[in-house]
Design a binder for these strands. Structure first.
Lengths: 132, 132
DNA sequence: TGAATAATGAGAAGTCAATATCATTTGTGA
DNA sequence: TCACAAATGATATTGACTTCTCATTATTCA
């Protein structure tokens, strides 16, 4: 479990706050969003620590990257069921979407080896629809 | 047809070569790919001209942007039928994929307004499969 | 509690795609 | 052919996101 090439991990307020941000949000978060949310728990938290922690959580398998077209990377907790994402064009937040169109696997041209796929929905989320 | 806010458009070797690159390739191209392909027609072509021309072609409706997760923008000719894209992880080229999973429209959560969607396939293209 | 050292915060520095600058070249209509 | 202005090529610059540096702080365990 311990990797001798990595220093011993300590438990810190900052890391707890960052982990908590993901658990509470239940949606993919970008670095700035993580900072904004975690600042509520740890005033003074810096963006550098957010980036460092995201990187560490990736290494540790706590988080995984969510890449979206034309947008900076988001991060989400690992271990979720296969799902896709909805980007709200009004608030720029990203939400999880359950399910997956089965025919996706049939789209690949003949002779192409399909290894993975992404489905990204765009529109307006329910809270923006209500408030907008 | 002519926009008085824009200078008179001239016909140049460079623009012809860039347009030709898209027609010949029949797939989305990134700026560097465009440069590489168009250099065969116009030695000395610069990357700045490629960017300028892509922007102009976007304004003119000749090209449209293809945004892909975690990758720089590609561009493709407008007027194609609705389609999606396949990214080859070996050669990093992007190919068009005909068709669309119909159930995509059903994925959006209740209360969310779906306006558009993207489907991106990842894998190995046929030529890389053959040569790899 | 105290030494060792991991972690942090602030700001500098790096990356990389995309844009701006400017002297030179080239296309176009007269 | 000429004169004007659009277009180009080389390069500097921007802008955003991310990483690095280093002095300081905080955690851990003997």
């Amino acid at each position: 479990m311990s990797d001798p090439s990595q220093p011993v991990t300590r438990k810190t307020q900052q890391r707890d706050a960052i982990r908590k941000a993901f658990v509470d949000a239940s949606r993919p978060l970008g670095p700035q969003e993580v900072l904004d949310l975690a600042l509520e728990s740890v005033p003074g938290l810096g963006i550098a620590t957010v980036y460092r922690t995201l990187k560490k959580f990736l290494r540790d398998g706590v988080l995984q990257i969510v890449e979206l077209p034309g947008a900076p990377n988001r991060y989400e907790l690992t271990g979720l069921d296969h799902h896709h994402h909805f980007c709200c064009r009004a608030c720029d937040r990203v939400f999880d979407v359950d399910g997956c169109p089965e025919q996706v696997a049939d789209l690949a041209p003949a002779g192409f080896e399909l290894e993975a796929h992404e489905v990204v929905l765009y529109g307006v989320c329910s809270s923006c629809t209500a408030n907008g």
